[in-house]
């Protein structure tokens, strides 16, 4: 069964890129959210296996959303989508419960290497 992926990012452009990365039979994009609040809602509704989460977003940041989602589920794989220069924020996100992170601009292989560490 394909793994369910939820993409949380405020930029259509980035969501498009991430969708392309996960366009394989192993994955199914079950939903997209454009901010942290929507991200938490969509998580409850769709129960994804993997969440790709932007850090800086309107209304509720990716870190806040990660913290809330992690309290709801210990199993969901949360991967932060960060940029260079955001190291401190990424560390905060990891403390909040993120499993790992990718750095923009990223290549498909890099994302898959990170994801494959968590799925067997």
């Amino acid at each position: 069964m394909p793994r369910k992926v939820l993409i949380v990012d405020d930029a259509v452009f980035m969501r498009g890129l991430i969708k392309d990365v996960f366009s394989s039979p192993e994955f199914e994009i079950v939903g997209e959210a454009t901010n942290g609040i929507e991200g938490v809602e969509k998580f409850k509704e769709l129960k994804p296996d993997i969440i790709i989460m932007d850090i800086v977003m309107p209304f509720k940041s990716g870190i806040e959303a990660t913290r809330e989602i992690r309290q709801l589920s210990g199993n969901v794989i949360i991967i932060m989508c960060s940029a260079l220069g955001q190291e401190t924020l990424v560390m905060e996100a990891i403390e909040a419960g993120a499993n790992d992170f990718i750095v923009k601009p990223f290549k498909k292989d890099e994302v898959m290497t990170v994801v494959s560490k968590f799925i067997k």
Binding site: F13, M14, A83, P105
Partner: peptide, 10 residues
Amino acid sequence: FHTLKGMSNT
């Protein structure tokens, strides 16, 4: 600005 940075570098 942050979003613009990420997109343009990509």
